[in-house]
Nucleic acid binder design. Structure first.
Lengths: 407, 407
DNA sequence: CCGCAACGTTCAACACCTGAACGTTAGTCG
DNA sequence: CGACTAACGTTCAGGTGTTGAACGTTGCGG
């Protein structure tokens, strides 16, 4: 072992240039693949956009990266030899088709909820290949949840061609502080757990933790309604209320990963008690649970979809319950819009099922409390539904894999 | 003209490596110079820090940048020939002393207030050399303010050795939307003006606009109480209330430069009217003007310092007025701390003069409304006083000057 | 059917970084 | 006080990487 492969690369050396250029090529391939996928979803904005070249010829890679064709040729040869890339059709005028090799590996994403675990396997550009959702007893212990995730993941990996798993990203419905679950009382089965260590023990590949709302924000931004914009704020309203922020096309995690925690903004100092211990938090006004509780007298044991149906069929009480949630949501969004000024606000999670009902009132609340300049920020329901967090976890996992280091 | 000097540099070429390495060297020189300056201010934390090498020998540059000594030698030779660098003492074991050449140029910063203009000239690392503050009639027209700034700047440039002015950064007490002053009613003399165009016409060098609270945030972060931390939030409370956020040691401007606008967060939907047109904004509770108005009955025509003195001397009313402002401030800070989780909150502007009086109540308000995990975020008064914005404008201007491109 | 255009590859030329060797100077130890 | 050593800056040869030009190949249009 003459040269240790762990030798840290000198920051300004020519070889670091090569790595950077390799990374550039790989990034373009990943981005184009995901864009392609999203367009194939049938997005409405597919026509007016200037449509980047969706072919993967070496020539287009050269144009996209700004590198010379000769350089791209060298890089593609190296990466193909390393098993990372794969060239499909032959040469000639039409050029070849380069793509990430399917045998280069997979990434996985896990979405832990309060009563379920969803697991997905995707390719290295973060596109979903197979997924499965399993129900669990409410508020599962973290060990049980991780075990379920692991066995589900193994089953999914059996459904795809053999290739190494490179990264797993775990989405948790709780603020992530460093490597454990922050703020007590929020996600019972995981309280105080060193989640990163537990996850590393459960999976034998690199692992990252991420807040589920952050994941949803990323997915809606890359694949959903916020596609093409450069900033967005995503509110996930389900069991609780969380938020995720995209700035300059990237997830904004803040100083310690808890940026975007909109759920416990104080709206009324004398408002109802919240599970976080404070009073008058947004979550105490606008979570699914809250709406259900408001309707407990009229529609006991009704699920949220039933309440939405009732509102649409004319129930004044149901409509009012949802509107109240929306107004308070809009109020909190005004703070977000004042502080961040995103290009769009996306509402996701189960609350998205209420559609225009909640959008209308959220917009009213927003306009009333936001500065003029940002009061008309668009508010829309996410287009990915409850899959958003899971899709986002694949995107994050794919970002973590650094194929340029595979020499 | 064979090769146009405007030719954009190929992104992956060896010459781009050289530029990047040059930039790396220059960045270290700038950063060390500023750090040195701040330490010389007599900061209390000068002892325990691991103290980076404050000497500017080529050897220390090599260590700091990770480049080989030979490379640093080449770069220093080139940049010296270009007139950007200057080597002081001779060689030998103690090494030479490299620094930015004083004749390489200056940057300037301007701080526009509601009744004054402050102008400063600094070196290319953003250190203040000379400054001057001139009083203006209240709410000056933007043309008048710019003219005053320009003549003051010319006078200041006469006080320093001849060298080109490279950049001017203008601080405005208003949100900056793109290139003009956002949100009406905030900064009367500049309303709706294309401030960037006006400023370009007034100064014949590149110009940037920045919110004054953002500038203050940067200054306190690099030179003041937030030194050494990697994130911070700065609230500037004077005529109005503004905020600036530092994340990962950098100014966070948000999607369109208006991030951190804390002044118009709604605290009470039924609160007093605010100049922004909404109700119950923080600014309606916690600005200097508000405190003065609260005291108008007892101390008519009293300035803020007099009110602070009265409070310190036992006036219950004065103390209560300041405490009320602090409590509401703390409430708003809770939103900030939940959403951004900065390592520290710094209070600047004229409100800083109230010291512990406002700090105490701000902390109480913060603890009451923030999530447990962040409720104990430190709150401190800025150490730069009202110079913060002006010092920050020099730092921003220095960042804009790209000396690596001077070939 | 032919010519042109675009594509991918190869090769020589060029630019840059780096380790080693060298002269120089300032501390340090005897 | 003097010699030795350590650290510094510079020079030079060697290695790595990118690039423009040239070339063979293939599809498209006339």
């Amino acid at each position: 072992m003459r040269h240790s492969s762990l030798m840290v690369q000198a920051p300004g050396s020519p070889s670091s240039l090569r790595t950077a250029n390799r990374r550039r090529v790989l990034d373009v391939l990943r981005r184009l693949a995901v864009d392609d996928d999203a367009v194939a979803d049938g997005s409405a904005s597919a026509e007016d956009a200037p449509v980047p070249p969706t072919a993967f010829s070496q020539a287009s890679l050269a144009r996209e990266t700004g590198l010379a064709p000769a350089t791209v040729s060298n890089i593609v040869r190296d990466l193909t030899a390393a098993g990372v890339l794969e060239t499909l059709a032959g040469g000639g005028r039409r050029g070849s088709v380069v793509r990430l090799s399917p045998t280069a590996g997979y990434v996985a994403g896990v979405d832990f909820g309060h009563e379920h675990v969803a697991v997905a396997v995707g390719d290295l550009s973060g596109r979903l290949l197979v997924s499965e959702r399993v129900a669990l007893a409410p508020e599962p212990d973290h060990g049980r949840a991780l075990a379920a995730a692991r066995s589900t993941l193994e089953a999914l990996l059996g459904q795809v061609p053999q290739a190494p798993l490179r990264h797993v990203t775990l989405g948790l419905a709780a603020p992530i502080q460093g490597q454990s679950v922050g703020s007590a009382n929020i996600f019972p089965g995981w309280e105080g757990v060193d989640a990163l260590a537990a996850a590393r023990a459960a999976f034998s590949v690199p692992v990252t933790l991420e807040n589920d709302a952050n994941l949803g924000a990323l997915a809606e931004h890359r694949l959903g309604v916020a596609r093409g914009l450069h900033s967005s704020f995503f509110v996930k309203i389900s069991h609780g209320v969380g938020g995720g922020l995209i700035v300059a096309d990237q997830l904004f995690r803040g100083a310690s990963g808890s940026a975007g925690e909109i759920g416990h903004l104080t709206l009324d100092e004398q408002g109802p008690l919240c599970r976080c211990g404070s009073r008058g938090c947004l979550e105490a006004y606008a979570s699914i649970q809250t709406v259900q509780q408001m309707m407990a007298g009229q529609l006991p044991d009704a699920g949220f979809p039933q309440i939405v149906s009732a509102a649409e069929e004319g129930s004044v009480a149901a409509r009012r319950a949802i509107e109240d949630a929306g107004l308070h949501l809009g109020w909190a969004l005004a703070s977000i819009v004042n502080l961040f000024n995103p290009a769009i606000v996306v509402i996701g999670g189960r609350m998205g099922q209420a559609g225009e009902l909640v959008l209308e009132s959220a917009r009213i609340g927003l306009r009333r409390h936001a500065l003029d300049a940002v009061a008309l920020t668009p508010v829309a329901v996410g287009s990915l539904g409850e899959r958003a967090s899971l899709l986002g976890s694949l995107l994050v996992a794919a970002e973590q894999v650094d194929l340029a280091e595979v020499v």
